[in-house]
Design a protein around this nucleic acid. Sequence first.
DNA 1: TGTACATCAGTGAACGCGCGTTCACTGATGTAC
DNA 2: TGTACATCAGTGAACGCGCGTTCACTGATGTAC
Lengths: 189, 189
Amino acid sequence: VTVKGTQRRAELLDAAEKILCESGYAALTLRAVASTAAVRLGHLQYYFPARADLVAAVLQRTLARSLERLAPLLTPAAAPEVLVRRLLSEQDDPDLVRMYAELWALAGRDEAVAAVMRGFYDDYRAHVAALIRTREPSLPDADCQARAGVFTMLIEGAALFRSGLAAHRSAGTDAELVAVAAGLLGTSS
Amino acid sequence: VTVKGTQRRAELLDAAEKILCESGYAALTLRAVASTAAVRLGHLQYYFPARADLVAAVLQRTLARSLERLAPLLTPAAAPEVLVRRLLSEQDDPDLVRMYAELWALAGRDEAVAAVMRGFYDDYRAHVAALIRTREPSLPDADCQARAGVFTMLIEGAALFRSGLAAHRSAGTDAELVAVAAGLLGTSS
DNA sequence: TGTACATCAGTGAACGCGCGTTCACTGATGTAC
DNA sequence: TGTACATCAGTGAACGCGCGTTCACTGATGTAC
């Protein structure tokens, strides 16, 4: 495990992540990844012997990075409404929403992918639950979990209906969405 | 346009819908459809000259049938909680949820598919809005629309988080989900 | 009632293409003595 | 400080496969006269 090897591997995952985001899972072929990373097909296979290895690696890394980006937003510092708006603005990147939609579809056909996805959303939900707990300390833990679950459903459902996939954005619906989502996070400050 | 031709066409769409539901979009190949319908590849091409024609036709028919199944549930006859529970029980079929996930992913890569999807959800949302209007006649129309929009986000988000794709079902979260969704529909009876 | 003919329904073989995978190979880098 | 050798990094060509599409063809069904 040399420094060069680690770096190359990261470059290949960069290329894979770029393709997955911009062009989708169907376009995530070994040849496309190799070409994007300016590497020969056979060489890519040296690092990822089978396509499944590459897919698993890029999935893990992409979701871990997503969580790193989302977790800092889920702090009690801001008012719930502000927090929800920030969270929703993360959905402004169409490529990202498209990618999530593809991962959901993938999870439906591949139990290993589904397990990784559930792990990601478990972490996400735990952050939300902790936030609710901070805001309403007297609320039983089970209720915090339940509210966090519904909050997550709502936010991820919103991704579909604010991105053009299932509907276009609407200011009126957004206002109601923010109100409902903020209400789930706890009493407004 | 003979009766035989119409019937054959329906049989082919049946086969395509079955594959799309059970095995997903990637498995929706012309050879698989022809084989399922017990028809030769060349013959399938006679009815659907290009794959895109078949995909468009099966998408239209599948969503139209979905709406026919969902619309009767969205009547003011039942209490909101009961109605929401019935709606959620429609998500008990894993194949169906998987298929929706695939259609969302598809919509992200194909604007024609996205347009069909948006049309479907426009109709769906209109039904919900009408239901809310019945239940709370004094509510301005814009508010009905906004609430219906959030309701739809929540229900579709719930599909992801109750099917194993993004999370497994939880009784506690379900209870909170029903409460929030029913609240959006209007005052409880 | 029969005949000619156009259209509809269905067959079968082949095409070029991109895919994941395999494999034998070469050059560079590190390591043991 | 040099040498031998194992491991790492990278190349290039070929494979079998399934895909959508094309096309020439045959048989069945309807229609006009």
